[in-house]
Nucleic acid binder design. Structure first.
Lengths: 317, 317
DNA sequence: TATATTTAATAGGAATAATTTATATTAATA
DNA sequence: TATTAATATAAATTATTCCTATTAAATATA
């Protein structure tokens, strides 16, 4: 049994196709086929059900592949041990960030990240939460930054900041000008939300809809906050912005902002990584860096964390 | 990097000698040397300090070997996955038992173990606790049965029974004939104990000496309970027996037994295995078997567990 | 039904890698 | 300095992996 064989098997399990798996492993299909056969022969089991199309997994096969992943994951940590010892924060690092966090967080720490760790080649991936989680679990990402809690047993979450939601109310809204608002004030408004698949939307729905029926005339799902603000400016409804987004508005727009009364509804933004702790030394560096950089900008204590998972209760911090 | 290379490295780390390590791996010394060099080359570090005699480890080397052990351990679990799926309780299984438990426990379950699992080849090792732990950590054993708690982070303990200590008092002892005794009664007696290295002795010392100075005239450390009983019979002091041992005494000897008042001082006897959970399916079978077989013989609830680790407090169950 | 098309398995040979035997080097010790 | 013990190196052998080419089987299409 070799580590290479295990990688081949994982590739077949993932792509359900020997030819494609072979390509991904940079070998020819016969090579991969032979090694899979050898692995199956040595273990005296069949891992893949070749009679099905696409290729299926036997019951043992599924468990075997799980174990394969463990072994490969542990073997990949070997390089981490070396890097950690050298104190070298280097190599390739794949960081996924959800779209509603990316534009505000990246400017805060990208500069310092690249200048502090010149040996580190970071690739950024902007994807919705569920895709990030998927990639994280399949070794396609080393770390993600997303709204939490995600409630996933395979993952570890390390909160870095709590970011309150701020309501953006057009002038003619009945609550406009109020010093502090509470979620209940907004129940019967038309909501302008990001389109589905963005966890930010789930959070807002948990905030406004969870225990109350939606009472507005319509809701619109857009892809960016810019659109939502423009629509709100035209009096088509209200929207919500995460706090960091409000810092980049012009002075006119800022007049529309209405912050919530304590405990402010907020989202918890966390670093999320796999339990296998691959590249943990780099993750820790990024964590320290982010904690340092966000500490100044975000000091909210009395907040209610609105879950990005549908229909979950708020957690007070 | 191959699993074979990792096994070679682990062998060198263990034996601190390339030649011996090669023998243990059933290859020639140059083979092993070359593979170690390749591994070091690929990782771009040196694992072993060849300038020292015996061979030393570099700082990274130590961490690398830890990671090697993890990978190899996970890779060995592959076969477990297969065996578990087949429902086959088979293959080689190495079970270590401390000397004070071996002679009483083995007769209880050996028969049923071998007849229930004919495919399983169990090797038994009778060794003092510290050696068992050492072997368990180095994959030299799959499971041990010992007095617990051991307080070792790498190990998992599953208690199977609580075995009270019974005092063996010669006729002329001042407490002879008492219906129930308490530890304090025995503080000023001459103690006949097993020689050092046996955890049973530590337990007794925790029971009688922990907070009190030893007041007897002498103590003798023997290798077996038989000797101790004979010496006690001759009036040379008192001794203690674990409950299961008392069942095999003749009727005359049984008259000397004095059990403790509740909560009885007792030892906790547990299955102890490594956190890596190798061969866990077999371990679980043995656990179930032992629980079933000892349930009838040992039903003591109100006991104080006397630790086999020196100078630890009792734990009431 | 016959014919493409897709996909995995097989065969044979080239390239690569692991292992062995034999030998050299090195370091410690008498 | 000679001797011993232990690791490294060299050359040859063996084993394994991998590739190219081909076959076989299954599926889809005409």
């Amino acid at each position: 049994m070799t580590i290479v064989q295990l990688k081949y098997a994982i590739a077949v399990a993932e792509h359900r196709n020997f030819t494609i798996a072979a390509e991904k492993c940079f070998v020819t299909q016969p090579t991969l086929s032979m090694q899979i056969q050898k692995l199956e022969g040595e273990l005296e089991i069949t891992i893949f059900d070749r009679s099905k199309k696409p290729i299926g997994m036997t019951e043992v096969g599924t468990k075997i592949i799980q174990q394969c992943k463990k072994i490969v994951s542990e073997s990949e940590k070997m390089q981490d041990v070396v890097d950690k010892d050298r104190g070298v924060i280097g190599g390739n690092f794949k960081l996924g960030i959800v779209p509603t966090i990316m534009p505000t967080l990246l400017p805060i720490f990208l500069d310092e990240l690249v200048s502090k760790y010149p040996m580190l080649k970071v690739s950024f991936f902007e994807l919705p939460t569920f895709e990030l989680i998927d990639k994280l679990k399949n070794n396609g990402l080393d770390l993600i930054i997303a709204s939490t809690p995600l409630e996933d047993d395979e993952l570890i979450e390390k909160p870095i900041y709590y970011e309150p939601f701020v309501a953006y109310l057009p002038e003619k809204n009945k609550n406009f000008g109020k010093k502090e608002i509470i979620p209940k004030d907004l129940y019967s408004n038309d909501l302008l939300l990001l389109r589905d698949g963005h966890c930010f939307r789930n959070s807002i729905e948990n905030l406004c809809f969870d225990c109350h029926e939606y009472k507005g005339k319509f809701e619109l799902k857009s892809g960016s906050f810019e659109t939502l603000i423009n629509l709100a400016d035209q009096g088509l409804g209200i929207t919500f912005l995460p706090y960091l987004h409000t810092l980049r508005l012009n002075s006119n727009q800022k007049k529309m902002l209405h912050s919530f009364k304590n405990p402010k509804p907020a989202r918890e933004v966390s670093l999320v990584y796999h339990k296998n702790e691959n590249k943990i030394h780099i993750i820790n560096e990024i964590k320290d860096l982010l904690n340092k950089l966000t500490k100044r900008k975000l000091q909210f204590n009395d907040v209610n964390i609105i879950s990005p998972i549908k229909n979950r209760e708020a957690i007070r911090v």
